[in-house]
Simulated assay, not measured.
Amino acid sequence: MTETHISSAKFEDLRRIRAEAPATVTELFRDRKRRDLLGDDGKLFIVAADHPARGALAVGDNPTAMANRYELLERMAIALSRPGVDGVLGTPDIIDDLAALGLLDDKIVVGSMNRGGLRGASFEMDDRYTGYDVTSMVERGIDFAKTLVRINLADAGTSPTLEATANAVNEAAAAQLPIMLEPFMSNWVNGKVVNDLSADAVIQSIGIAAGLGNDSSYTWMKLPVVDEMERVMEATTMPTLLLGGDPGGDPDATYASWQNALALPGVRGLTVGRTLLYPHDGDVAQAVDTAAAMVHNL
């Protein structure tokens, strides 16, 4: 990664704002230039960076790839500068950094809500809502809400997570705030939570998640690209963004699977993080441009 978008002076200013003038972050966020949720083509391409808040810093075989916040912000700045990138998904710390750096004009901002189910924790399935809430997102002018809905039929922690998610759906609908649900059927395997990526499991998770709350009119889905994706998309009428998942394997095969899934009815775009921010060859701009071209036919 050789491209640079944030100077050392900008980072120094960010540190100064956080220490000496924290109200500036709110002001910069409030005064940013806004845009409509969907452009003329009705598609969305969102870059995700909410992984560290769950203690998930690994990319591929590097366990601390996302640990350096300055490097992550630099990669985010490169991604947000590329044509066709509509916005960013993050927790408050990431979004506030990007706002203070002046990188959110004309971008859709998606607030990540539940990050309490820390990776590897005994309580991982009890995925508390420890990030944004609907009230704060509406007050700050955030455009979209996002939740993770892992459903483990063998773990009682799933129950409070489902209840909290239903409440979030209710609050978002009342506020007319779009909210995307990222559902999985999950299991404990050798002490780790493993998501079932079979088509039948994804379809089952959609059925459960789609029924949460008392008003589904503002609910979107955020779904993995799996085999038999045609069957998966037949399981919902809700607008859907595809997620990138953990990077690995053949990038060309990954891109091909995205391209095929993007052509399906109901699919509105991509929400991808590590696969594009930490590509195998280190070229963030090229990886982002490849995905943007698929979403927006650039």
Rank of each mutant, 00 (worst) to 15 (best):
R32M: 11
G55M: 04
T64F: 13
D283I: 07
L181A: 03
D61A: 13
I179T: 06
M113C: 13
H280C: 00
L262N: 04
N68V: 00
W188R: 12
L72W: 01
D283K: 10
P22H: 08
G273N: 03
L264C: 10
H5C: 09
L298K: 13
K107D: 00
S205L: 08
G213F: 04
R32A: 13
A23N: 11
S217I: 02
N195A: 14
D96N: 15
S122Q: 08
V134G: 01
P160W: 01
F184E: 00
L148E: 03
T4K: 14
E234F: 09
L28W: 10
M221Q: 12
D133A: 07
R32F: 13
R119W: 03
G141N: 10
L241P: 02
E27D: 14
P160E: 02
G87Q: 09
L89N: 04
G282N: 06
D97F: 05
A58N: 15
A166H: 09
K192R: 15
V225F: 04
E163A: 14
N297W: 00
A67N: 09
Q176S: 12
T236I: 11
E228V: 00
W220H: 08
L276D: 01
A172T: 05
R268S: 06
T158S: 12
A21L: 09
R140N: 05
L212S: 07
D289L: 12
R115F: 08
N62V: 11
E71N: 11
Q176P: 00
G245K: 04
D127Y: 04
S8F: 01
E74I: 08
A293Q: 11
E163S: 09
I46T: 06
Q176A: 14
S122V: 11
E230R: 13
K43N: 03
G269K: 10
V47R: 02
V193L: 14
N190S: 15
I142D: 02
W258E: 00
T290D: 02
N260V: 08
V109F: 06
K43S: 07
L243Y: 08
D106E: 12
E230A: 14
T64L: 13
A99Y: 10
G269D: 00
H5I: 01
M76L: 15
Y129D: 02
T147E: 03
I94A: 03
L270N: 03
R231C: 01
L38K: 09
L153S: 13
Q286F: 05
D50P: 11
W188C: 02
F184D: 01
D196G: 09
A261M: 06
S257V: 00
A49S: 15
L148C: 07
R30A: 14
A121N: 11
T158E: 03
P83G: 05
G141Q: 11
G207K: 14
D155L: 06
P183T: 07
L148K: 10
G42A: 06
Q259P: 00
V110H: 09
N170M: 05
G116F: 09
Q176E: 12
A121S: 15
A174L: 10
F29Y: 09
D40Y: 04
